[in-house]
Amino acid sequence: MSLVRRATPEDAEELIRLRKIMLDSLKPSDDVGWQAATVRRLRTELARPDGDLAATVVDDPTTPGRLAACATGKIEYRLGSPDNPDGAIGYVFNVCTDPARRREGHSRACMRALLDWYRTRGIRKIDLTSSPEAESLYTSLGFHHMPEPAMRLLLPGTGT
């Protein structure tokens, strides 16, 4: 059984370590220049107990100060619609388990705790993007594919 807790500002560096693992699994990169600014921003966000960002984590039972897994979520506000009158929507990202701790149920435990956080905040509509390897986890939690196509524009000077 994984013991899940809410992340604190002190977990920011470990959350970014796990994020790097996740990002490298999608597109390997030696670039770590983004990490310091991201740690600072994450510490600020995690210091707000009633903020719109939360991360749930499982501590690595074999290494003090190290995280085994995490799931991060954000609440965003858009204009309402018939299926979402208040326009509040959750977005899950940064779900990762340290390679040494995989297949132990940690990501599932983090996701369940994060979904509970959304429930307490009254969020009913939650989106995420999944890798093929993680799709079975998310479908088992009730997520399904959406028919709406997604598109993105990167304005000059905003990165890739």
Rank of each mutant, 00 (worst) to 15 (best):
M1R: 12
S2C: 08
L3V: 05
L3T: 11
L3N: 12
V4H: 05
V4C: 12
R5C: 11
T8K: 01
T8F: 07
T8A: 12
E10A: 15
D11F: 11
A12E: 02
E14P: 04
R17E: 09
L18R: 01
R19W: 13
I21D: 02
I21S: 00
I21W: 02
M22W: 11
L23S: 05
K27N: 11
P28T: 07
D30S: 03
D31M: 04
D31W: 06
W34T: 00
Q35Y: 03
A36S: 07
A36N: 04
A36T: 14
A36M: 10
A37K: 09
R40F: 08
R41F: 10
R41T: 14
R43N: 07
E45V: 14
A47F: 06
A47N: 03
R48E: 13
R48V: 08
P49H: 13
P49F: 07
D50G: 02
G51L: 02
L53N: 04
A55C: 15
T56E: 13
T56F: 11
T56A: 00
V58G: 04
P61V: 01
P61G: 06
T62G: 10
P64H: 10
P64Y: 14
G65A: 05
L67A: 06
L67T: 08
A68W: 08
A68K: 03
A69P: 08
C70D: 00
A71Y: 03
G73K: 05
K74H: 05
I75L: 01
I75Q: 09
G80I: 12
S81E: 13
P82Q: 07
P82V: 15
N84I: 14
P85W: 06
D86I: 13
A88H: 10
A88E: 14
G90M: 04
Y91E: 11
V95P: 00
V95D: 01
C96N: 07
T97E: 06
D98C: 00
D98G: 06
P99C: 04
P99I: 14
A100P: 00
A100S: 09
R102Q: 15
G105A: 02
H106W: 09
R108T: 13
A109Q: 03
C110L: 05
M111V: 08
M111P: 06
L114S: 03
L114C: 07
L115P: 02
R119V: 13
R119F: 03
R119M: 04
T120L: 12
T120N: 03
G122H: 05
I123V: 15
K125T: 11
L128V: 10
T129G: 14
T129Y: 05
S130V: 15
S130D: 01
S131H: 06
A134H: 07
Y138F: 15
Y138S: 02
S140Y: 04
L141I: 05
F143Y: 12
F143A: 02
F143C: 01
F143R: 01
H145W: 12
M146S: 13
P147Q: 08
P149G: 13
P149N: 09
A150R: 14
M151E: 13
M151R: 10
R152S: 12
L153H: 14
L154Y: 09
L154E: 13
L155D: 05
P156D: 14
G157N: 08
G159A: 09
G159R: 13
T160E: 15
